[in-house]
């Protein structure tokens, strides 16, 4: 049986992105993106709305096709994979959507059981229940098991979204704006949860956000994106001690907010 956590080789590059370009008509969203994510690392991609952050992780997950460039995830070129290869890769990738994207016709328990039933059909009901309880306990929402998504708060939906992702035991987590639209206390809870997930399940993560507090709390490294390319990469202090005007503006804006 596959272990719930993964062995760490800190030097292994789990995501390698090089010269990535993507346009929608005349809108050049990504213009030569380079990024390396190492095993066990959390990288925060920080940038204003519309800079191409979400497009980047959708390309990593194979939801969008790049115009050119290389996206290698766990040693496999995403663009070259066939349907079966992409399916296998996605089992190792967890994607947390901005609004949770929970299946609103299913209860929380059914939301969690659904990917398991489809991807691990041999699993017994008892095993499945155990796995559901484990991830619900990990996100601190064991009591919501029989609730419908409509009955949950925004923060709870995001937590269940993370639980649904964790249930397939991914090696890499992709978070799309995990704290967007949440109050500061819930934001802190989500930030702590992201760090707990990294520590407990030994995942590597890319966190897309425009929230500096989230970036500081969760990122081992930060990549600042502007107009489809990274203008600065490094840890929080390296990036924000820099005198670059745009970065200062970003910092001041978040501070004022």
């Amino acid at each position: 049986m596959k272990p719930f956590t993964h062995d760490i080789d800190w030097h292994e590059t789990v995501i390698h992105i090089q010269d990535l370009y993507k346009s929608f008509g005349d809108n050049h969203v990504l213009q030569g993106v380079h990024l390396d994510l190492h095993r066990g690392e959390n990288i925060v991609v920080l940038g204003r709305s519309g800079t191409g952050k979400s497009v980047l992780i959708k390309i990593i997950a194979g939801l969008l096709k790049p115009d050119s460039g290389t996206v290698r995830v766990l040693g496999q070129d995403v663009d070259q994979l066939d349907t079966a290869g992409l399916r296998d890769l996605r089992l190792k990738l967890g994607f947390c959507f901005q609004h949770g994207a929970l299946y609103d016709s299913m209860t929380v328990c059914e939301n969690l059981a659904f990917p398991l039933k489809r991807n691990e059909p041999g699993m017994t009901r008892a095993e499945r229940d155990r796995r559901i309880d484990l991830v619900l306990e990990a996100v601190g929402l064991a009591h919501t098991k029989n609730q419908m998504p409509a009955e949950l708060s925004g923060g709870q939906r995001k937590r269940i979204g993370i639980a649904r992702t964790l249930i397939l035991r991914p090696e890499i987590m992709l978070y799309d704006e995990p704290t967007a639209g949440l109050d500061p206390i819930t934001c802190t809870e989500i930030n702590n949860l992201i760090n707990e997930v990294q520590g407990r399940f030994k995942t590597s993560s890319i966190i897309i956000t425009h929230d500096l507090t989230c970036a500081k709390a969760t990122g081992d490294n930060i990549a600042v994106m502007k107009e489809g390319r990274f203008i600065r990469q490094g840890n929080f202090n390296e990036v924000f001690s820099d005198g670059d005007e745009l970065i200062r503006e970003f910092y001041d804006y978040n501070f004022i907010q």
Binding site: L91, F95, F114
Partner: peptide, 17 residues
């Protein structure tokens, strides 16, 4: 509704067709 709330994408990334 499933499409605009990204539920269809969520299925796709969960390796469900």
């Amino acid at each position: 509704s499933m499409k605009v709330t990204e539920q269809i994408d969520a299925m796709e990334v969960s390796a469900i067709n």
